[in-house]
Design a binder for these strands. Sequence first.
DNA 1: TCAAAAGTGTTAGATTTACACCCATGA
DNA 2: TCATGGGTGTAAATCTAACACTTTTGA
Lengths: 225, 225
Amino acid sequence: MTKFYGEHSKVWLSVDCIIFGFENGRLKILIGKRKMDPGRGEWSLYGGFVAADEGVDDAAARTLYELTGLRNVYMRQIGAFGKVDRDPGERVVSIAYYALINVADYDETLRMEHGLEWIDVEKVPKLYSDHNEMVRKARKMMQQKLAHEPVGFRLLPNLFTLTQLQKLYEAVNGEELDKRNFRKRIKEMDFIEKTELIDKTGSKRGAYLYRFNKRVYNEDPNFKL
Amino acid sequence: MTKFYGEHSKVWLSVDCIIFGFENGRLKILIGKRKMDPGRGEWSLYGGFVAADEGVDDAAARTLYELTGLRNVYMRQIGAFGKVDRDPGERVVSIAYYALINVADYDETLRMEHGLEWIDVEKVPKLYSDHNEMVRKARKMMQQKLAHEPVGFRLLPNLFTLTQLQKLYEAVNGEELDKRNFRKRIKEMDFIEKTELIDKTGSKRGAYLYRFNKRVYNEDPNFKL
DNA sequence: TCAAAAGTGTTAGATTTACACCCATGA
DNA sequence: TCATGGGTGTAAATCTAACACTTTTGA
């Protein structure tokens, strides 16, 4: 309640993005080698600064857009990381966000231009500054979110098979699921619609493709998983 | 990953505290009327600025200490609130925290000196800026936390009766619980120790007092509730 | 003596888990 | 023809939820 602007000092504010993708049955994040000091050459999350006339959430969305060319991406704030010496150069407080994208939506050329790589979340190397801590918290929050809301679709193409969906849940939770029990639960969710389309890339027999129906989900929110 | 300090602008960083207390069977928070501009006279959370040489978490702990004289309080970050115009005066980004305190530990004189009041969470008035949003998020996160970890003790005296504990859970979750089922679950938790002490303030017959044993909890973490 | 809170077990229902075989197809 | 992933139901076990009466004591 006691606030006087003038006598207090300002800090730089940055945003850092943990960008999750799902590829070859594994949960991955996008990281790259830093191209500037401090920390040049170290593995790092992608981030950027918050501009004076820009909301923090907006800065995160813009940063992600600059990197991927994608808009309307599912993003959630992880929290503020504000240790005094977290940035070796200056006092920078960073607000971390995680994003869920469909890997196929992300142009490979663009990815390489930025020098980024998809790294298995189980094999993330030592990262710059406190970025490992951010990743840990992001994973925990994302896992928690997925357990309560159907956000997994954000990591898949619009049309997906039940096996893909199951593998996604397995990758996020780090444990195998029973196929029949999984499908039983999915069948109860009206907002996961079966289409008449068949995907034959994953098997000889082919598997039905499903899609997430946002309208049904919003109207009939017995959401739980 | 692309960071250049110089060309970016700095912001003021503040912390705001949602201080939860439990009194007369109701969950409450501490708020007061702002004593300075902008927003003078409006109901508001208690907050403060982050100093240049101070971690954000440290700033929150210090702010709480200045207000209550209490240290080692259970505090958790809620997140960053960073809309451009959230503060009517200047660009201030605020990191919100919630704290759980035992109302009896907070000196009444100190409370009045700061002009703060315990307000039922169900009756929180319109607050300054985005503080209502902070309170909403704090309640949600605290409720979530309580459902998975035994943090409720932080809101009670060291010794408490099972009825008090039950009322606390009921207040936080906003729903009544079955007394027998509740006590059954508590009995399974070895870290809630029954003492031989009796509290006679709540009833003529008297009720056994219990305490939370941190050591047992840490060693035997089948924690769930 | 009675009002008010403390304390205590059992049962039905719901949910969760474990588990195995046939199907369709392309190679 | 056979190897591969797709698809399907049932039964046991566990967990959850509902429910009512006796005890103690101060007023």
